[in-house]
Amino acid sequence: MDSPTALFDSYESDFKQIVNSIREKLEGGGQDVQGEQRKAALRRVEMELDEADEMVSQMEIEIQGIPQSLRPSYQTRIKASKADLQRYKKLSKEAHTQLSRSELLTRPGMASPSSDEPYGGSASDRTRLLQGTTLLEDGSRRLQESQRIALETEEQGAGILRSLRGQREQIQNSRDTLNRADTSIDRASVTLKKMIRRMYQQRVVTAAIIAVLVILILVILYFKLVR
C-alpha cells in the first residue's frame, strides 16, 4: 500500500526542481544573458512559476489526506515552499522591470547624456521614459493585484476542499450507521419470526392437549352412562 505522504513528496520534489531552474535563470548564469535570449528566459521563468504554483496547490490538497500526527511538519514545508515561490515571483517582476527599462534606455534615437543635461536625451525621450516607467509601475501593481486574487482564490479552493472532505466523512459515517441499523433490523426480524413460529407451535400443542382431554372426557362419559 502506498504511503499517505508519497504524492506530497512527489509534488514537493517537482517543485524543488522547478525552483532550481528558476533560480538559475534569475540568479545564476541566466541573469548575464541579454536581449531576446533574456526575454525568452524570463518568459520561461513565468511558465515555471505557474508550474511551481500548481505544485504548491497540489501539495495543499494532498496534505488533507496525511494523518494528523504527521501534518504539522508537512504544513511547515508548504509554508517554506510558498515563501520561496513568492520570493522568485518578486525577483521575476524586478527582472522584467529592469529589462524594460534597459530597452527604453537603449532604444534607437535616444540621445547620449551630455554635461549640460545630466539626465541625458531630449525632453521627448525623457517623457517617453517616464511614461514607460509609469506603465511598468501600473503593470506591476496589476500583477500584484492578480497574484493577491490568485492567492485568495487558492485559499478559498483549499477551504472548499476541506469542507467537501468533512462532508464526505459525514456521509460515510451516516452510511455506516444505516448499515448497522439495517443489520439490527434484520436480526430483530429473524427473532420475531422465531417467536411467531414458536407461538404457532404452542397453539398447536395446546389444541392437541385440549382435543385429547375432550376425547378422554367423552370416553369416560360413554362408559359411565352406557354401561
Rank of each mutant, 00 (worst) to 15 (best):
Ile78Glu: 05
Ala80Ser: 04
Gln147Glu: 15
Leu105Lys: 15
Met59Ile: 11
Thr97Lys: 00
Pro67Glu: 13
Leu104Asp: 09
Arg71Gly: 09
Leu70Arg: 11
Leu70Phe: 07
Glu145Ser: 06
Arg107Val: 09
Leu91Val: 10
Arg101His: 14
Glu145Arg: 08
Lys79Ile: 01
Tyr74Met: 04
Gln98Asn: 10
Asp116Tyr: 04
Ile78Asp: 04
Pro72Met: 00
Ser114Ala: 04
Tyr74Ser: 00
Ser140Cys: 03
Ile149Arg: 06
Arg77Gln: 03
Ser69Tyr: 09
Ser146Ala: 06
Gly121Ile: 02
Lys93Glu: 13
Leu129Ala: 14
Gln86Thr: 15
Leu104Glu: 10
Gly121Pro: 01
Arg148Pro: 10
Ala111Cys: 03
Gly121Ser: 09
Ala83Pro: 02
Leu136Cys: 02
Gln75Thr: 08
Ser81Asn: 06
Gln75His: 05
Arg141Pro: 04
Leu143Ser: 12
Ser69Cys: 02
Glu145Gly: 02
Gln68Ala: 15
Pro72Ile: 05
Gln98Cys: 04
Lys79Met: 03
Leu105Asn: 13
Arg142Ser: 13
Ile149Asn: 06
Tyr119Gln: 05
Asp84Phe: 08
Arg141Thr: 09
Lys90Asn: 15
Gly120Asp: 02
Arg141Lys: 08
Thr134Asp: 05
Arg87Glu: 07
Pro118Tyr: 12
Glu60Ile: 13
Ala123Asp: 03
Lys89Leu: 04
Leu135Arg: 05
Leu143Glu: 12
Glu145Val: 05
Thr134Leu: 13
Ser112Leu: 15
Gln98Thr: 08
Ile149Glu: 10
Leu136Met: 03
Arg126Thr: 08
Ser102Gln: 13
Ile66Val: 12
Leu151Val: 07
Thr133Ile: 07
Arg141Gly: 07
Ala150Trp: 08
Leu151Ala: 06
Asp138Ser: 00
Lys89Gln: 08
Lys82Met: 07
Leu151Ser: 06
His96Ala: 14
Pro72Ser: 00
Ala150Lys: 09
Leu70Met: 11
Pro67Arg: 06
Ile61Glu: 14
Ser140Gly: 01
Ile66Glu: 11
Ser112Asp: 12
Met59Tyr: 13
Gly121Lys: 02
Asp125Val: 05
Leu105Trp: 15
Gln64Glu: 06
Arg128Lys: 04
Ala80Phe: 03
Gln86Met: 14
Ile66Leu: 08
Ser69Pro: 02
Gly65Cys: 02
Ser112Thr: 08
Met110His: 02
Ser124Ile: 04
Leu151Pro: 02
Leu91Met: 13
Met110Ala: 08
Ile149Thr: 08
Leu70Thr: 07
Lys79Ser: 12
Leu85His: 01
Pro113Met: 12
Lys79Leu: 03
His96Ile: 15
Ser146Leu: 03
Glu103Gly: 03
Gln58Tyr: 11
Glu60Cys: 11
Ser122Ala: 07
Glu117Val: 13
Met110Trp: 01
Gly139Phe: 01
Pro72Trp: 01
Thr133Lys: 01
Gly121Glu: 06
Arg126Ser: 06
Pro113Phe: 10
Glu137Pro: 00
Asp138Asn: 00
Ser115Phe: 10
Glu60Gln: 14
Pro118Phe: 13
